[in-house]
Amino acid sequence: MLLYLAGSLIGVAAIVALAGWLFGWRDAALDAERVAQALAREVPGFRAGRASPDTRAVLIEDARDGAVYLAVARGDGLVTRKLARGLGVARDGGTLTIRLRDFTLRRAHLQLADADYWEARLKGLAP
């Protein structure tokens, strides 16, 4: 049994190494346009407003209602969340750290030129 498990793990490691060699390990670089397109598919009527991208995460407003969305690169895909009051928000200069109550997306770090604006926006979110 132990031999079977060890063999399986070695097999998994070999396939993953091959996948890494063939397709790479890096997360996709995000930009506001890609995020806006993704949100337009997910959120009916979404209209992109102000966005503040770095290459790993994007904060973007819905111009209709001022809702704020976070998009984070995960592999070659992206994960989006609508943000609501109750987040942990901390700013250190241009670095904004967002802590979410989300089991699979616990925090995001963003390097922003306008971090002070986004800190205020996130702290003033609706419930």
Partner: peptide, 18 residues
């Protein structure tokens, strides 16, 4: 994986595969 790499028909990502 080899087919996708050389034809582009499909998508793989190493962390997702892992």
């Amino acid at each position: 994986m080899l087919f996708v790499r050389f034809t582009g028909r499909g998508r793989f990502e190493a962390k997702d595969t892992a």
